[in-house]
């Protein structure tokens, strides 16, 4: 972090003054973080959105060809009067989202007009939200995209972020807020999963056979091997419920504890992938918002003397 520390922080209060409670709250919600971190986050998120269109929520082109009888629009689609999807609609939308992603990533590498990258970002946000909402509108709704949807809506608010050159090391409150929103999206996904388990399954969810249900229906060889003896999956239910309940700690944890928690969440997603091919990759990508990504740049770019 030495390179960052050397960069003057414009507008920061003078060092040594005691912050008021309002300043402390501001310091938490709007922690100034290097713009280069958001630049890297943009590269990862917008590349992933393109991947997502083809390998995660890749079914809208198939779904759009179904009889309209099978279309069960979720509320956001009816409220916004979005059309019953057709092939032409979803294929055009996918092409537009890819082009806009390319534009945003270009704006991280080269200096483009600020309005242009912001516009491209909004196009990705609206187009991708529409796309994923189509995937959720045939009566199966997943919750693995919450943090990613939040990410595509908040990332355009940060303004110009370049990977290198002047300004990359500047710390910005707008950047800190955007990353906090993504972090809250991740934590909400975990913590509210525990809330939903209590709401739908009851407090005894942990002692049931829900994971056995999942492994029986879609377990891989490894997943099915975990079915017997049953206590293995029961113990996993206790563990995962505990992880979800404790997840908000990561918002306050700093340094090694925070990075270990990120690693822990990633191991959890890897294990569900190995056991039943459910990876939650859109959420895994958003976990990167907890990491000081810009250190990968500092190794190559020595600070200017």
């Amino acid at each position: 972090m030495t390179a960052q520390a050397a960069v003057p922080v414009a507008g920061e209060p003078p060092a040594g003054s005691v912050p008021s409670p309002a300043e402390r709250l501001r310091g938490w919600v709007f922690t100034p973080v290097p713009l280069a971190r958001v630049a890297l986050m943009r590269v990862v998120v917008y590349l992933f959105v393109v991947y997502d269109l083809f390998y995660v929520v890749n079914d809208p082109p198939h779904l759009a060809q179904n009889s309209a009888v099978l279309y069960r629009p979720i509320r956001i689609r009816t409220w916004l009067d979005l059309p019953t999807p057709s092939s032409g609609y979803v294929l055009t939308e996918r092409a537009v989202v890819i082009a806009a992603c390319a534009l945003v990533i270009t704006g991280v590498l080269l200096r483009l007009p600020r309005w242009l990258t912001a516009l491209a970002g909004v196009v990705v946000a609206a187009g991708f939200t529409d796309w994923v909402s189509i995937g959720m509108s045939y009566s199966k709704v997943d919750h693995d995209h919450f943090a990613l949807i939040m990410a595509v809506w908040v990332l355009p608010t940060v303004g110009t972020t370049l990977l290198r050159g002047r300004g990359a090391g500047l710390r910005s409150e707008a950047a800190g807020w955007a990353l906090l929103c993504i972090q809250v999206g991740c934590v909400a996904t975990y913590f509210l999963s525990a809330v939903a388990k209590v709401r739908y399954g009851g407090w005894d969810w942990v002692t049931g056979s829900t994971f056995a249900w999942a492994m029986t229906r879609r377990g891989t060889g490894l997943g099915r091997a975990l079915l017997d003896p049953p206590w293995i999956l029961t113990a996993s239910q206790f563990l995962i419920f505990a992880i979800e309940v404790c997840s908000p700690v990561i918002l306050w944890a700093r340094g090694r504890v925070r990075y270990l928690m990120v690693l822990g969440f990633m191991v959890f997603h890897l294990s569900t992938y190995l056991a039943m091919k459910i990876h939650f990759l859109p959420l895994v990508i958003c976990l990167l918002a907890f990491l000081p990504l810009e250190i990968v740049l500092q190794r190559r770019e020595k600070p200017v003397p």
């Binding site: 979720i74 509320r75 956001i76 939200t129 994923v132 909402s133 959720m136 709704v141 997943d142 919750h143 693995d144 995209h145 919450f146 949807i149 939040m150 909400a188 996904t189 509210l192 999963s193 809330v195 939903a196 388990k197 709401r199 739908y200 399954g201 009851g202 005894d204 969810w205 049931g208 056979s209 829900t210 994971f211 056995a212 249900w213 999942a214």
Partner: peptide, 13 residues
């Protein structure tokens, strides 16, 4: 959705 409950695997078997 996207502000719905995180209901995957939330039922009890």
């Amino acid at each position: 959705w996207p502000f719905g409950p995180m209901s995957q695997f939330a039922f009890r078997t």
